[in-house]
Structure formats: structure tokens, C-alpha cells
């Protein structure tokens, strides 16, 4: 949370998250308790790129992105680290902005497709009114032109402009999801955060919605963070992939590389345990449960479930080590610092 408006070093970078820690801090009767939902995450997202974030429920994915877009409220607080955006040369630290400037950035430069966005649309207002509520003030055009622009946008996304006259309950789940994607992209933002956009949909609709999401991103050349626990979705929709476990990023790299050659034992387990059509080999799930974030195990947080755990893993948390260009892993066994690291 240092001084705002410093130029971000790499011009192509849109988002830079450095050593971010966000805890849910509660204090009852003199007993304080920290739930370390995001613990020292460093990542960056380049322009015109879809960054995937994978991990199971309660590993801190949603907390991380809520922290990134500064949609946090107590007891969640940022304890350390910074989140910097660079919207076309205008760099800013999102936690150093005042309310007015934050409101100016939101939706115009930074928009957010929420989890279960089926329920985001106001049930007693027509879809058109939701568009007006969210986007009208950012576009800065008179109402008739604004509505024409919205209709154009829907047509470009191959959505029937007639949906504008419908109430949310008259649309199917997939249709509502498409409307929220159109809503999040109507101002042509530089950065879109999508939290589990397809989780509630079935396979056929899921594929269409992902295709739409990807097309929107290509059309407006924005960057995107796509959060989902489904590795199949990541494989087909994202450019780079970060895997989270218990509040920490444990592996990151190009999606194809991470899925084809996972280094971290947790990632390897996630990828190999998936059944595939045409493959009847017996598969094993992981034993044990994800750790509690209020009292995470010492050292590497995966060690109680890890088949490769050594003495070192129980004592110290492994750092992120680059094992190949752009492929970083936090594991004492698979990526010892200074050992296997690429020259």
C-alpha cells in the first residue's frame, strides 16, 4: 500500500499482485483468530491473456479475487502486499485509490462476473434496466444511444436483443449467464474477473458460455482471470494456469505445460485423477481433507496428504522456484531451490 501511480515496469502487464496476504480477522472475548485465506500470493496477468486459477473449494480462490478487485469488507482485511493495475499506461495501486476514483475504474476498466451470477440480476427488474443500472453512467451517452450500443453489443455476442425486455426468471440458466457476461463486457473493460462462471451449468451450455467468454475477451482484447475448480475448463479456455492450495499459489505456468507436465504432487493428483472417456484404468482420489485455514499445518501445507513428503516439508514452506521458462513450482522435492532450476 505504497504511493499510487508509479509506472509498472513491464508495459504489457495489466495486473501485478505482489506477496498478497489477506486474512479474515475476528476478535471475540479477547481471543483473536486469523483465517489465512490468501497467504503470500504473487502473480501477474499480461494484456490479452486469460489467466486460470484452479483449486478446490475453501482454498482461497474467491478471497484472492475479491481482494484483487477490492471487493472486501471486514472481517476480511489485506495484511500485506499490493495489487497494481495498469490500464493503458495509467498505473494504480487499487488500495491507494479513494472511493470516487475506485468507482470510476470499476466496470469501466475492471469488471467482475460473480459466482452464481444467475442470482446477480435483479429479479424484479427487466434485463434492460440492469444494463442501465450498471453501465449507463460509465458510457456517458444519452439514453437512446446507450440502448442502441447495448443492442449492438448483444448482437455481436449473438444474443437476441429481445432478452432486454425479459425478466431474469424468464431466461434459462445458460441465457442468464450469457447476459451477465454481456453486462460485464459492455463497457469494454481492460480487465474482467470471472468467478466460477460455468459451474452451475451443464456440459452443453458450459461449452457455449466458455466460447462466448473467450470470444468477448478476444474482441475487446482485455485480460481476464478465470476461476474454476474444473481442470477441463482450464485446459480449454485459459492461456496460463495458477494452482492454489490452502491459500497459497503452488504451481503456475502455461496451461498446456502445467496440465501435461505437472510438477507439484497436488497438481499431478488433480490432473491424473480425472477419468476420461476411453480410459478404464482405476484412478485413486486423494486421501484426507484440505487443511483448515485457521490452523494450517506448518511447512508445506500439502505435506499431510503428500506421498512424497520429507522431513524438510514438515518444517519449512517451500519457495516458488522457476523450473522452466514461466513455470514456477513450490515444492521441496520437485523443485528444490538452486537444484533443478533452469539455467
Amino acid at each position: 500500500m505504497s504511493a499510487p501511480l508509479a509506472k509498472v515496469a513491464d508495459a504489457e502487464r495489466v495486473l501485478d499482485v505482489a506477496n498478497l496476504r489477506a486474512y479474515y480477522q475476528t476478535w471475540h472475548f479477547g481471543v483473536s483468530r486469523d483465517v489465512r485465506a490468501v497467504d503470500g500470493v504473487t502473480l501477474h496477468v499480461d494484456r490479452n491473456e486469460i489467466y486460470g486459477l484452479a483449486g478446490e473449494s475453501s482454498c482461497g480462490k474467491s478471497t484472492l479475487i475479491r481482494t484483487i478487485v477490492r471487493a472486501i469488507r471486514p472481517p476480511l482485511a489485506v495484511v500485506e502486499g499490493s495489487v497494481r493495475f495498469d490500464f493503458g499506461g495509467r498505473a494504480c495501486d487499487i488500495y491507494a485509490l479513494d472511493r470516487a476514483r475506485l468507482a470510476g475504474i470499476r466496470w469501466r476498466h475492471l469488471s467482475y462476473i460473480l459466482q452464481g451470477s444467475m442470482n446477480v440480476l435483479n429479479p424484479v427488474r427487466r434485463v434492460r434496466e440492469s444494463f442501465v443500472d450498471f453501465a449507463f453512467r460509465h458510457i456517458g451517452k444519452p439514453m437512446p444511444q446507450f440502448l442502441a450500443l447495448v443492442e449492438d453489443h448483444l448482437a455481436r455476442l449473438r444474443l437476441d436483443p429481445a432478452v432486454l425486455g425479459s425478466f431474469p426468471h424468464e431466461l434459462s440458466g445458460g441465457m442468464r449467464q450469457r447476459v451477465t457476461i454481456a453486462l460485464a463486457s459492455v463497457c469494454r473493460p481492460d480487465f474482467i474477473v470471472a468467478d466460477e462462471p460455468t459451474t452451475a451449468l451443464d456440459v452443453v451450455v458450459q461449452k457455449d458460455v466458455l466460447a462466448l467468454l473467450r470470444e468477448v475477451q478476444r474482441q475487446i482484447r482485455s485480460s481476464m482471470i478465470l476461476v474454476t475448480h474444473d481442470i477441463g475448463v482450464h485446459a480449454n479456455a485459459t492461456d496460463r494456469l495458477g494452482v492454489m492450495y490452502a491459500g497459497r499459489l503452488i504451481e503456475e505456468g502455461r496451461t498446456g505445460e502445467v496440465i501435461r507436465e505437472p510438477r507439484h504432487p497436488y497438481t499431478a493428483q488433480l490432473v491424473t485423477s480425472l477419468p476420461r472417456i476411453g480410459d478404464i484404468e482405476p484412478k485413486q482420489g486423494l486421501d484426507g481433507a484440505p487443511p483448515s485455514l485457521a490452523a494450517p499445518p506448518p511447512g508445506c501445507r500439502f505435506h499431510p496428504r503428500c506421498p512424497l513428503a520429507m522431513e524438510m516439508c514438515r518444517r519449512e514452506h517451500p519457495p516458488m522456484v522457476e523450473v522452466a521458462a514461466g513455470h514456477r513450482v513450490a515444492c521441496w522435492v520437485k523443485a528444490p531451490p538452486g537444484g533443478m532450476a533452469a539455467p
Binding site: I50, V203, V204, Q206, K207, D208, L210, A211, L212, R214, D230, I231, G232, V233, H234, A235, N236, A237, T238, D239, R254, T255, G256, E257, V258, I259, R260, V271, L274, R276, I277
Partner: peptide
């Protein structure tokens, strides 16, 4: 067939060329 074609397989990783049905 449509159902089967819609399954997103991790094998397609690295060539994100998802197309609508």
C-alpha cells in the same frame, strides 16, 4: 454425440480453441 463433443477434456490443453456448439 453433442453431449460427448461438449466434454472438455484436459487433453486439449494448450490449444484453447473452444468453439460453440
Amino acid at each position: 454425440r453433442l453431449l460427448k463433443a461438449s466434454v472438455l477434456s484436459p487433453e486439449d490443453a494448450g490449444k484453447p480453441t473452444i468453439a460453440a456448439n
